[in-house]
Simulated assay, not measured.
Amino acid sequence: MNKNEDIIYDAKFWKPKINEDIVLHKAHFNNYGFDKHVHEDYTIGLIYEGQMDAFVDGQKKKLNKACVITINPDETHACQTQYHEGYKHYSIYLKPNFIKKLEEENFYNQELFFSSGIFENRFFANKLINIIMENEYKTNSSIDFECELVSTLNELFLNNSKAKMPIILSEHDKMINRAKEFMNYNLHLDLSLDDISNELDISKYHFLRLFKQKTFISPHSYLMLKRIERAKQALQKGESIINTTYMCGFNDQSHLNRRFKAYVGLTPGNYRKFFN
C-alpha cells in the first residue's frame, strides 16, 4: 500500500438479495492501492472515473474506463493509483459455485476461466457499471438485476474465456499445485517453509524460488492471502471475529486486525458490518 499525505480509501461492500454467491464492491482510491494478491472468487473490475496502474497477466499495465478487468481465482494481481491521481471503481466477486451454475446451464458443463485479464470494450464496461449502479441505488427490481447480470456475464465469458481443456502439467507446476493444496488444507496451523518443503520432499530454497517464479508472490504472502480470503468468507456469514481469528490461523485478534486491514483496507469489524 502507498502511504502519502492525501490518502483516500472509501469502500462499500454489499450482496444483492438474489444470490449469496455474489458480492459487489465500490471504492474510491487516492494515493492508495493493494500490492500483489489473490482472491478465491472470479473477480470483475470496472473503472468509472480516473485511471489505474495494475499488475495483470504477469505484467504492469495502465487501465482506464474502457477496460473490464477479469481475474480468475488464485491469479496474482495488484492495483495502484496512477501518478498519484485517484480513481473510482466497482468490483463484482463471483464465487465458484455461481460460475459452476453458468457452466451447467449455458456452456455444456465446460469449466470456464477468463482467457485474458483485460477485456477492452467501453460499451461493455459501461453496461456492467450501469447494472451495478442500478442495484446500488435500487432503481431496478431484483429480477431485472439478475436477468441483466447473468445475460451480460454469459456474453463476457463468450468473448473472453476458453473451456478449460486438459493440459499436461510440468513437474514444477504439479509441485506448486501440491504446495497450494497443502497450505489451503492447513491454514489454521502455524506453517513454516520447512513444513511445506518437507511435504514436497525438496529443498526449501528451491521451493521458494519456484513458487515466486510461478505465482509472483512468496509462499508466506500466499498463505496470508488465503487466510484473509477465508476470514472474509467467515465474516460475510456472520462469524464472530474471535472465532474467525483462530479458524483462519491468526495468532490473536490484533494479528487478524493488522493483516486484514493491510490487505482489505478495512478492519474485520467494519467489513463484517456490511453483511450483517
Rank of each mutant, 00 (worst) to 15 (best):
Y263S: 12
A78L: 01
S151V: 00
V38K: 04
N72A: 10
G86S: 13
I22L: 01
V150H: 01
G249F: 04
K65S: 15
M165P: 00
N177P: 01
S151H: 07
I228M: 03
E120G: 06
I168P: 03
N135P: 00
Q213L: 06
N64D: 11
E49V: 03
C147K: 07
S221D: 15
I22Q: 00
A231P: 03
K95S: 07
Y90G: 07
Y222L: 05
S91W: 03
N184M: 09
D6P: 04
L235V: 04
I99M: 03
S115M: 11
R259C: 15
D195R: 12
T244N: 11
T244I: 08
E49A: 14
L128K: 02
E146N: 08
K226L: 14
K62W: 02
S170A: 03
I228Y: 05
L149T: 02
I69R: 02
Y205P: 00
V38R: 06
N154Q: 13
G238F: 09
D190T: 13
L210I: 10
G238S: 10
N130H: 09
G45T: 11
S203W: 01
K212W: 04
E181W: 01
L191K: 08
S240K: 12
D6W: 06
D144V: 02
K60A: 14
I69K: 03
I8V: 09
L24H: 00
R230Y: 09
K226T: 08
K138G: 06
N72G: 11
F123Q: 15
N97P: 01
E40L: 11
I228T: 11
M52V: 06
R178I: 04
T43Y: 10
